[in-house]
């Protein structure tokens, strides 16, 4: 177990260093973009006087490295600052948005992950026969269609024609859980269709790989049912690669769903980030960038640890 702990500490330290680099890159990136936040806020209505007033008030006249350092100081003391464009506290705003994003990602994962693994197992059980081909065909087709297309098709049939689900997935506090789930039913469906294929194919490939081993043959010769062989004997040894790809897709569900958010008007992090990038609102972009990077790094860390814990050879190296 000491091995795992050491790795954990190492990884977290590296992760923090990565986050620092990410924040630097994001800052430089937003500095390179044309225009600044004052120009973006005032838009076509800007006059030289109002521009100068706004720049002064927002502290944009200070040199860039100084602004970066003062932001960094704030973050290290747990203060993400306030948004330049509307003066709102970033921590509370992100809290709301991140909560929404995680809510959507969670329910999409609850549906997608078990479904993908189950379909993967079924595909192995009936490999190269029609159920396998049907599952692969359908999931590959659904991943090949762009998200906005699937989204609009679902809206047309289920929101406009049948009126089963709302087309606008706006959720807010006063809604009950059931109402919220009803509101996000369509975006969940789209997300599931997008992530299903990747996880399903990986499950299938990983298990098939294990199925070549001699001990599987032994299990089959003992007379175990095919599904039991797959689930009890092959699956545990294929967990590591499956967890890897599951984590990758979970990360996608958190950080990569901006298109779905726009189509279904879901108030998540993606939309929040895009709004503020177009306003050149550096502190918010920084904060979002940090959170997204942290999610990626964190989930990858989990994947590594799971693969070590499930593999005795890695747990007890010679």
């Amino acid at each position: 177990m000491g091995q795992v702990l050491k790795l954990l500490v190492q990884r977290i330290a590296l992760g923090l260093l990565l986050l620092l680099l990410v924040s630097l890159l994001v800052f430089v990136g937003t500095e390179i973009l044309p225009g600044d936040v004052a120009q973006s806020i005032l838009g076509q209505a800007a006059t030289p006087t109002s521009l100068a007033n706004l720049r002064e008030e927002l502290g944009l006249n200070e040199p860039a490295p100084l602004r970066y350092l003062s932001w960094l100081g704030g973050v290290l003391t747990g203060d993400l600052g306030t948004a330049l464009s509307n003066g709102q506290d970033i921590t509370t705003q992100i809290g709301l948005r991140l909560g929404n994003t995680l809510f959507l990602a969670f329910w999409a994962a609850v549906v997608a992950v078990p479904l993908a693994i189950l379909l993967g197992l079924l595909a192995v059980r009936y490999r190269n026969r029609w159920p396998d081909k049907l599952i692969s065909g359908l999931t590959l087709a659904s991943i090949s269609l762009p998200e906005f297309f699937t989204g609009y098709v679902l809206i047309f049939f289920f929101a406009v024609k049948l009126r089963w689900f709302p087309s606008v997935a706006t959720v807010y506090d006063s809604m009950s859980l059931l109402e919220k789930l009803n509101a996000i039913a369509l975006p969940i469906a789209v997300l599931v269709m997008v992530v299903l294929a990747h996880m399903m194919r990986m499950t299938r490939a990983a298990i098939l790989n294990v199925m070549q081993s001699a001990y599987i043959e032994t299990a089959e010769l003992k007379g175990l049912s095919p599904f039991k062989v797959i689930f009890r004997h092959a699956f545990p040894n294929a967990v590591a690669p499956i967890v890897n790809v599951v984590m990758l897709n979970l990360a996608y569900l958190v950080v990569g769903v901006v298109v779905v958010e726009v189509i279904f008007v879901y108030p998540g992090m993606g939309q929040y980030l895009v709004d503020h990038v177009s306003k050149r609102d550096v502190p918010v972009v920084q904060a979002c960038g940090l959170i997204f990077a942290a999610v990626y790094i964190g989930l990858n860390l989990v994947a590594d640890i799971v693969s070590i814990v499930t593999n005795p050879r890695l747990r007890h190296p010679k």
Binding site: I155, F156, A159, V160, R163, S167, V168, T170, V262, V265
Partner: peptide, 19 residues
């Protein structure tokens, strides 16, 4: 007021009676 920036989302919301 509901923010519906995507033109298609606006139309769908009107057609489905959400706004």
């Amino acid at each position: 007021t509901i923010a519906l920036n995507d033109p298609t989302a606006r139309l769908a919301a009107l057609q489905s009676g959400q706004v």
